[in-house]
Amino acid sequence: MRWIALKYLKPGYVLAQRVADERGRTLLAPGMTLSDSLIRRLQRVGVRAACVEARETEDVIVREMVDPKIKSQLMDVTFETMTELSSPVFRQRLKPTFLRKQFSPLLNEVVQQLREHNGAGEQLGSVYIADGELFHHSVNVTFYALTLGMQQGLTNAELVDLGLGALLHDIGKLRLPQKILQRAGKLTDEEFGTIKLHARYGYDILAKLQDVPTKSALIALQHHERLDGSGYPSGLTEAHIHPFSQMVAVVDVYEALTANRVYRKAFLPHDAMNILLSEKGVKLSAQHIDSLFESISIYPVGMTVRLSNGECAVVIQPSAYNNQYPVVRVIENERGEPIQPYELNLATTSDVHIVTCES
């Protein structure tokens, strides 16, 4: 199996992983054979890539670090919770809400599964629609954050608090005008000022809830603060930013950079890594950046890439030390024609490198 960008999908491909909506519910199930009409449907709902079965990579297994059923449940509860808490109706009635109690069983299950797989290492992504971008981003950030938390030796109770804050770190965005959030072009200074409000909006929502710990609510408020005081909303420096917020700040940046957005294409994973490394110890925690790249595969198994010689390949073995040099299986020549597959270790091939991801 392999991940492939929507524009390269053809009728006859068979889905290897499901396509989920913004609530984690299945739109298209694994095993479905794609037709022209189904591909057009994926395009209409904003799907950008799919994991498909492929003869040339039938021995490549793309694992999800968290069971799809658990991830689906977490997605659904996150969607329901964020939508309810951000609504004007909720603000008017202010009913008691027990979020930590509600989320704890799911977060404990996620932690257990991440421990079994040594963290959110290989592959976080399942296929999702563009309208679910906020919710999928929140869940993926949570998986990364929990992985870092486990590396830092946090207790299960602390991991639940970290996970709760990570899941809801962007809840304030649901109080912003969607036309600004979905703007494809560059934001004006005024519009960016509006975007910045989501941090305080999110904190205001969570701080009012009786069983949300302060350190969880602070993640919503502080995940855009930076160690040197250049962040927002308060320009805090390192000593005043909670460690949980520093952790989420790192994984939030990485997840956002490596995902397609309405206003830009995803960065190559090693380019995203270099962006984080350029801010290491200055804007973002050096400890958490190091932990992140020790625990994830920046080019996960199954990712389809285009090489500098024009050939198309699929990652079959992550790179050592998480650099940009995985082992790939080349499946197409520079003209897009199928060839007899062969394997290439980019770490020992000085004249060939990855130039773009096609998944």
Rank of each mutant, 00 (worst) to 15 (best):
R93Y: 15
H137F: 05
G24F: 01
E337H: 02
F293C: 04
V250Q: 03
L206P: 11
K71Q: 02
Q317K: 03
T237L: 03
R226M: 15
I39N: 05
A313L: 10
S216H: 01
D76K: 06
T83V: 12
G132N: 01
H223N: 10
V305D: 02
Q324F: 01
V352D: 03
A16R: 07
L38Q: 02
L181W: 01
P233N: 13
T81S: 09
L181P: 01
V66H: 04
Q340S: 14
E22Q: 08
S126G: 11
E311P: 00
F79T: 03
C357D: 03
V111N: 00
E53P: 00
Q317R: 12
Q178T: 12
R44K: 11
D67T: 10
R115L: 12
G302T: 12
Y8S: 08
T356N: 10
R261D: 06
C312M: 15
L206F: 02
A266E: 15
V127A: 14
A120R: 04
I219W: 07
P269K: 08
F192D: 11
Q92H: 06
T78I: 08
R63S: 14
G132R: 11
L27C: 00
L134Q: 04
P68H: 12
V160M: 03
L181G: 00
I316G: 04
M303V: 10
D204V: 13
Q182F: 04
N260M: 07
R40G: 13
E332R: 08
A184K: 13
I316C: 09
V327P: 07
A199F: 12
Y325K: 12
Q182P: 00
G149E: 05
L307S: 08
E358I: 07
T57F: 12
I331P: 05
K71G: 00
V262W: 09
V352C: 09
Y342E: 05
I4N: 02
Y263T: 13
G24M: 03
Q210P: 08
D204L: 02
S126A: 10
E311F: 11
P318H: 00
D252N: 06
T348P: 01
T304R: 09
A239T: 14
V248K: 06
D211E: 13
G46C: 13
E58H: 14
